[in-house]
């Protein structure tokens, strides 16, 4: 049997490094999701294979269980994760392409931040003699190395798609195209949440099937002793919790919340945000300290 992929330990989950630095839970959650969206968008612009994009997102999520967002920005680490995962999945990409794409994405995001409409956006390529490229290249090399180092070079990722197909076959749902598409979509969206660093693949796949079948009102045996998820070695509490994590992605965010995330892509911004919001964060962390 192949080596098992790593999952965050209980201590790592309860007290993430970002939390220890005073970053509130909901902000960390949103920054994780935003970093993964950037990876996804970059993957599409680079015409990169989905396996590499998904693997990058898993590595990205694992990284924040051993590192604080005060130390590294989600933009840089996302870029490093995509670069690394592309090598791991045997479809390497060029540094220059990746850097150009990230530069565009970040420019577009900050354009939207100041309240201008997307149609007005015009990309300004980085100057030929400027330092932008070399700065980003250095950041990329450091990010890739830091991911490897902080994950102990254990970059084994197991993707959920094959398992989904097997389970849908067992449940005789493959003839329902809507179920397959929806469940597949939930698996993709789940990559914006930390669940792939928390739960085993069968649990996550069960959650995707659960959400899809509930939404399409397809009944599956769910009364003890015959519960369909038990067939796939999943526990109800875990499946439910993964489902909750995925659904939280679709929660309505205020404009303020959205802008806050876009403005915190860099570690410098996170640091100055922490300074401004220090009193609140301080009280948060002390209360957390007294609980534990």
């Amino acid at each position: 049997m192949a080596t098992l992929y790593p999952l965050a330990s209980l201590a790592q989950i309860e007290n993430t490094p970002s939390k220890q630095d005073g970053i509130p839970d909901d902000l960390e959650e949103d920054l994780r999701a935003y970093g993964c969206k950037l990876i996804h968008q970059a993957g599409i612009l680079l015409k990169q294979k989905q396996v590499a994009v998904a693997a990058a997102q898993v590595l990205f999520q694992r990284f924040w269980f051993v590192t604080s967002m005060k130390q590294f920005g989600v933009g840089d680490i996302g870029m490093g994760a995509l670069y690394l995962a592309s090598k791991l999945e045997e479809c390497p990409i060029r540094m220059r392409d990746l850097i150009n794409v990230y530069d565009l994405l970040l420019q577009r995001a900050s354009h939207a931040l100041v309240g201008k409409s997307v149609d007005m956006f015009q990309y300004h390529p980085m100057s030929y003699f400027g330092n932008t490229f070399y700065d980003m290249k250095d950041a990329l090399v450091v990010a890739e190395m830091q991911i490897l180092k902080r994950l102990g070079f254990n970059v084994h990722v197991v993707l959920p798609y094959g398992t989904l197909i097997n389970y849908l076959r067992v449940l005789e749902l493959t003839n329902r195209e809507d179920v397959c598409t929806k469940a597949w979509g939930y698996l993709n969206d789940a990559h914006q949440t930390p669940v792939y660093a928390l739960y085993q693949v069968p649990t996550i796949v069960c959650a995707a099937i659960l959400l899809a079948t509930r939404q399409l009102q397809i009944p599956l045996p769910s009364e003890p002793p015959a519960c369909w998820w038990e067939l796939f070695d999943a526990d109800w509490e875990d499946v439910w919790s993964v489902g909750g994590s995925i659904m939280r992605l679709y929660r309505k965010r205020t404009e303020e919340e959205k802008n806050r995330v876009v403005g915190l892509v860099n570690k410098k911004d996170v640091r100055s945000w922490l300074e401004e919001n220090a009193p609140q964060a301080g009280s948060d962390s002390t209360s957390a300290m007294s609980v534990t």
Binding site: L4, Y5, P6, L7, A8, S9, Q12, R62, F65, V66, L148, K149, R150, L151, G152, F153, N154, A197, Y199, Q200, P202, P224, E230, F232, D233, D235, W236, E237
Partner: peptide
Amino acid sequence: GSTSRQKPTHSVYVPPRTHHPPIQAS
């Protein structure tokens, strides 16, 4: 509340979660 229900035994294909290594730096 529902923990009174017996936990199903795991198949060999899905080892218990605790068998997975934690995320650990070099």
